[in-house]
């Protein structure tokens, strides 16, 4: 009797599993005398036994009627499920049914092999799609007929003077005012509307000039404040590594830049204030 080593044992075991053969006696002998392979051997024995229990536990079913009926109707099969017990009572009557359409005929009736589930979903969503299209068309018609009133399309002021050009961020806040005033002037005569429009344009022009002036001053203040920011060389001088670290007492002492800090803060605060002042509020006024 040939003696197997562990590699041969495992190869032979795999072969027996793949070929569905009973385990050879040599495998059994090797497993009994090899402490390394006995665990593998026992695991395989357990697994084989559990697999046999597992494979026997499949429930019995009978789908013949449900499938044939679903095929004849061309409907979703999910709702046609009948259990085997129910089918046994129905099957006698089924033999009296006329023969269903041939597969070729049914294939002609079903141009694309989409699943029945997709087909039913498509059928359900069709009314919703039609409703959405109709509503969209109605909205487009109402929009084109002007049923929503002139306030929805405010007239944009035309600025001819380049000095009056304002940044884009301003336009969003300003859009509210002409829209509001236009809606108020909707009931006036055309001459009044024209005068109002001219007055609004004048206000807007003055507002733009004022805002531009404030923004320019704020920029100048920021630039002035930025001059007080030390450069890298100045930083190197201020924080030389050869200097001893400041003691606790030194850290509490006033800094060499103490005199400059109020000026820096002064410029900075002024710049921030001017920027805040330059922001218009919702009613179109400035601080």
């Amino acid at each position: 009797m040939s003696v197997q080593n562990c590699d041969e044992f495992r190869e032979r075991l795999e072969w027996c599993i793949e070929q569905r053969m009973f385990y050879e006696h040599n495998l059994h002998l090797h497993a009994e005398h090899c402490s390394m392979c006995v665990e593998v051997w026992e695991q395989q024995q357990t697994l084989d036994a559990v697999i046999q229990t597992w494979s026997r536990a499949t429930p019995e079913i009978d789908f013949a009627d449900a499938i044939v009926t679903a095929w004849q109707r061309g409907s979703s099969p999910s709702k046609e499920i009948t259990r085997s017990e129910e089918n046994r009572e129905v099957r006698h009557g089924d033999s009296e049914k006329p023969a269903g359409p041939s597969i070729a005929q049914v294939q002609n009736n079903q141009p694309s092999p989409v699943s029945d589930h997709n087909k039913s979903t498509r059928d359900r969503s069709r009314p919703h799609s039609i409703l959405v299209v109709v509503c969209t068309l109605l909205l487009m018609f109402a929009w084109s007929a002007g049923l929503f009133g002139p306030s929805q399309t405010p007239e944009q002021p035309i600025v001819k003077n380049p000095d009056h050009l304002v940044p884009d961020s301003k336009s969003s806040a300003e859009d509210k005012r002409p829209a509001l005033q236009n809606s108020q002037a909707a009931d006036n005569t055309p001459n009044d509307q024209q005068q109002d429009t001219i007055a609004i344009r004048g206000v807007l022009s003055q507002t733009g000039v004022a805002w531009r002036g404030l923004a320019t001053q704020a920029i100048e203040d920021i630039e002035g404040a930025a001059d007080f920011v030390p450069t890298l060389d100045q930083f190197a001088v201020l924080f030389r590594q050869d200097d001893p670290p400041p003691s606790v007492d030194e850290s509490t002492e006033p800094n060499e830049n103490e005199d400059e800090q109020p000026l820096l803060r002064q410029h900075w605060d002024r710049a921030v204030d001017r920027l805040i002042d330059a922001i218009p509020f919702g009613n179109g006024t400035f601080i």
């Binding site: 009978d62 269903g100 359409p101 597969i103």
Partner: peptide
Amino acid sequence: RCLNGDEVGMRGLVERYQSIVFG
């Protein structure tokens, strides 16, 4: 038989393989 539209053939084919497919 199935291709000829024979219902008995279709039913027989389902009965033959339904357990396998269901398993």
